[in-house]
């Protein structure tokens, strides 16, 4: 053959390569450390402290941080360190589960809107925009009024807030891919619509969306904390960073450590996931570097 043969070594597997490049970025390492700290604390909460996060001990109300209670205790004498660790479980659980559900629903709806008939697309866009036009707090208030405060309510709010955005991104990309040559080629080779969406469209659209979703995790954590702070989320006595913050809020001048115990993990987690998402984006899609 007369043409020049370009044969760079076959590309290494995606996740391994991404991780190695992530570890070369200082911000990436910092982000991984922060996220690892939170995840570690949540997983091993039972081993890291012997205190029960819900056990009330009136004799040790408002003890400042010390050897007995690393972060002190709250107005009911509950150990704040235990509450923070167990609150982390709630925060991560809500963030990961509701983001995963949002992704799954968003992808399916986006593919249907993008690949399906025009009228269905128009209808779905209308619904997405309608849902999106509600402010998050209003949506949360409305839902909690209906079903009462609970973890499920928080997750439903998060899903309602996230799905329209994810679906729109998938829809736009699907429409762009629908007319691409390789989709036409697949059609001409007898592939069904479901097969085209699964084999050809999905792998092309999922990467950027996963990065976007990972950057949404801190937002979800903030929503959970915010709703729990307002008493719309996790019911007491279950620990949540938002409710700890609320406990500390009333006596912030005298016992500032309670507010710190609630606020610090939110800051650490939010920063960690945001940095992680941003470096992940830069590493996986160099075109976007330094933007956004």
């Amino acid at each position: 053959m007369s043409e020049a043969v370009s044969s760079p070594p076959a590309r290494q597997s995606g996740p391994g390569r991404a991780l190695r490049r992530l570890l070369r970025e200082p911000l990436g390492v910092f982000a991984i450390l922060l996220v690892a700290l939170v995840v570690f604390g949540a997983i091993f909460a039972d081993l890291l402290t012997q205190y029960d996060p819900t056990r009330i001990n009136p004799r040790e109300r408002f003890s400042p941080p010390g050897a007995d209670h690393l972060l002190g205790t709250d107005q009911l004498g509950r150990d704040l360190f235990a509450r923070v660790l167990h609150g982390g479980r709630i925060a991560l659980y809500v963030a990961l589960v509701s983001t995963a559900i949002s992704l799954a629903i968003g992808i399916v709806l986006g593919l249907i809107a993008g690949y399906g008939p025009r009228w269905l697309d128009n209808l779905m866009i209308l619904v997405f925009d309608a849902v999106k036009s509600f402010p998050t707090v209003m949506l949360a208030l409305a839902l909690v009024t209906l079903v009462g405060p609970s973890l499920t309510a928080v997750m439903v709010v998060v899903i309602l807030v996230n799905v329209p955005g994810y679906a729109r991104i998938i829809r736009t990309q699907t429409i762009a891919l629908k007319t691409s040559e390789f989709v036409t080629a697949a059609q001409s080779m007898g592939a069904s619509s479901a097969r085209i969406l699964r084999v050809h469209v999905l792998p092309n659209v999922i990467g950027p969306l996963v990065i976007l979703a990972s950057m949404d995790i801190p937002v979800v954590i903030a929503i959970e904390a915010g709703m729990s702070f307002l008493g719309l989320g996790v019911r007491p006595p279950t620990p949540s960073w938002g409710s700890i913050l609320n406990d500390g809020f009333s006596n912030i001048r005298e016992t500032a450590w309670i507010a710190v115990a609630g606020g610090l993990p939110i800051i650490v987690t939010t920063l960690g996931f945001t940095f992680l998402g941003e470096t992940l984006r830069d590493v996986l899609d160099p075109r976007l570097k330094g933007r956004g």
Binding site: E181, F182, G190
Partner: peptide
Amino acid sequence: RALRGQRISTVFQDPMGALNPVL
């Protein structure tokens, strides 16, 4: 659809676009 790709197949004009870039 059963015929396409089995008994009748197609090659298109643009070789750049005919293959899925991410697979």
